[in-house]
Design a protein around this nucleic acid. Structure first.
Lengths: 160, 160
DNA sequence: TCTTTGTTGATAATCATTTTCCACAAAGAT
DNA sequence: ATCTTTGTGGAAAATGATTATCAACAAAGA
């Protein structure tokens, strides 16, 4: 967190309260929030803040590599953990959870390089049903309410 | 291809010329086309055809599991190969290429299941620079022209 | 043939995201 | 401390991909 702030300064960006708020929301808060989520969360402290500012700040953080932008159903979600890791995505409630186990590069990197492609990072997403949605198993209900949490609850995180 | 047509009939869908055209474009043509790409391609044979119809048809095919919808920069691309495989995505020209080597499930599926998540399929995307964009290495040019091919050329496919 | 139901296609609507533009505040220079 | 430059925030408009609407139409079944 402090490291991020330092890098922002080093790059010549100003440290505004709005940026701090967005930064905190992404880093401290539960991961995989949408811009709208972050906006809502930050709005408590800064009711006058604009959604555009949230987007602008997230763009800065993304370009600096401090957050990773992923796309769930055409909507951007922001992950404060830039280390590559696995995402478990529920096909029903669209929750995104981290799988924290270390993953070695899943395909033979050497072979890919040999083909001429120069890889920089990868993204691995496993789709399926989260525990919550398995419980409320309404066959194939179209759009579940998605009560409360819109993001990984750590339950899976703890699953080793 | 015929198998897909059969399954469409079995599900009670009608076989219209438009659907055949879209189907052919996705299955035969080079993979990873956008809806707009498919529209352009089909427009040769059906100049009166609407873009909305392309979207509707792709939706049907997606729900049937005949094509996989992936998202590149917020834009949907359609892959006629439903087998899970690796995508190499160029960060510069946004070309998507297949990596055909067989990949065993990259993370311990058993461990994920044990955590309570029920996986159905995964998606693995490797980002980096394609050979073409490495050649024209203009440092970090913002938006390259992306001449000609918008999709995998097989060159990588053949790379074993 | 008549009726029912699925499809098409043009257009409008939607929704997330980006851009524009201006007032403002911070940083650096004088 | 004041002036000047430059970055930034905010509101609203613009964009662009996708989806919904709805009337005309065509295929399938009675």
């Amino acid at each position: 967190m402090n490291a991020v702030v330092r890098r922002l300064r080093e790059q010549g960006y100003r440290l505004t309260p709005q940026r701090m708020a967005v930064l905190q929301a992404v880093l401290k808060g539960p991961g995989h929030l949408s811009a709208e989520d972050i906006y809502q969360q930050v709005a408590d402290a800064f009711p006058m803040m604009s959604l555009a500012t949230v987007y602008k700040t997230l763009e800065v953080l993304r370009d600096l590599g401090e957050v990773v932008e992923l796309s769930v159903e055409g909507q951007a979600r922001y992950d404060g953990n830039p280390r590559p890791h696995v995402h478990l995505i529920c096909e029903k409630c669209r929750a995104v959870m981290d799988w924290s186990a270390e993953v070695d590069f899943p395909v033979a990197e050497a072979a890919i390089v040999a083909s001429g492609f120069r890889p920089s990072y990868y993204r691995l997403e496993v789709y399926g049903l989260c525990p919550r949605c398995q419980a409320s198993d309404d066959g194939k209900a179209p759009v579940p309410p998605q009560v409360g949490l819109k993001n990984g609850e750590g339950r899976v995180e703890e699953a080793k």
